[in-house]
Design a protein around this nucleic acid. Structure first.
Lengths: 167, 167
DNA sequence: AAAAATATGTCAGTCTTGTTGACTTATTTT
DNA sequence: AAAATAAGTCAACAAGACTGACATATTTTT
């Protein structure tokens, strides 16, 4: 019996002719990687991770969110959220307030400390975006926003705040 | 001694007035989440994760890459790569070829199976991008590519294939 | 009033994907 | 012959996701 041959290697590069918009696929990967690397540096120093960032971000964006609303936006499980939320509460970045109408609910609010951290994390991202808009032509802002908006699943577009800057 | 008061909650929402381009920060988060969710569904069925996707993608994009080059692009450690690469080789999605000039090197190539998986993973992403371009105006393609390119750290821009589609 | 549903919290265990440090082997360069 | 390089491997660890099960307080339904 002859030994099975290995499958032969393919030497031709995958290109946009094989899959349309391959360059945009690739750009999204690199752009997002570098975009998240900035706040990661700050988070690392205080023992937090990207998960803390996301939770803190949305609590700042919509103060008074309940736990259930937050789970829906983040699309993670209660147990995954619990750990990071507990840490954010223990470190006094976030406080819980019993729901005024429904006392089962816990409304989540940032403290001043939590607000300041959220701003510090947003700063390098804002800078990167502003710089990229300058380089690529500020007149394209609306086009870029529309494109990104259209990349989001229609069902979730309502969750995104798409008001124009300083509206 | 009076008990320490909890830090008071902040009820005002963080907005683009506090940090410029907050809506773009948010759009990037949602857009990238949904963009990666499509291939994740396919990967899950065959027991692979996002890490396999990235490795397979770059090996298809630049067949003949060495392990060192791949590590440089992905910015992960050799040990992190080893596990997923081994699985891709064991499942015959990728083959290694001893470097022709330097026999210490291992050139990485996709097999037909690996090429087909890479294409299957790219397909829903291509579809989403094409749809988003249609919705937001195909004339803005160049502007969007330029913006994403400008979001990448200058040092890494050379790694990105930015040739226009089907160039 | 009792039962069911809901919102949240928690315990215990698992998986993927990343990490570090140390070491081996083969090969090339000095 | 010695040093440097490319790759592979072992062991241990951590973050951040997961599942399933269950507890508690509260509200809604019957």
């Amino acid at each position: 019996m002859t030994p099975a041959k290995d499958a032969p290697p393919i030497a031709t590069a995958l290109s946009s002719e094989d899959a349309p918009d391959l360059n945009i696929i690739e750009l999204l990967f690199f752009a997002y990687r570098d975009f998240t690397a900035d706040p990661d540096l700050i988070l690392e120093k205080i023992g937090f991770g990207r998960a803390h960032h996301r939770v803190l971000y949305f609590i700042n964006r919509k103060p008074g969110m309940t736990v259930a609303e937050l789970l829906d936006v983040l699309k993670i499980t209660k147990q995954s959220l619990a750990r990071v939320l507990k840490q954010l509460i223990d470190t006094e970045h976030v406080v819980q307030v019993t729901g005024p109408r429904d006392r089962r609910q816990r409304e989540l609010y940032p403290t001043l400390k939590g607000r300041e951290l959220a701003l510090a994390l947003a700063r390098p991202q804002s800078r990167r975006i502003a710089q990229a808009l300058r380089e690529s032509g500020p007149e394209n802002r609306a086009a870029i926003e529309n494109f990104l908006q259209a990349m989001v699943n229609p069902a979730q577009r309502g969750q995104v705040d798409s008001s124009p800057a300083a509206g």
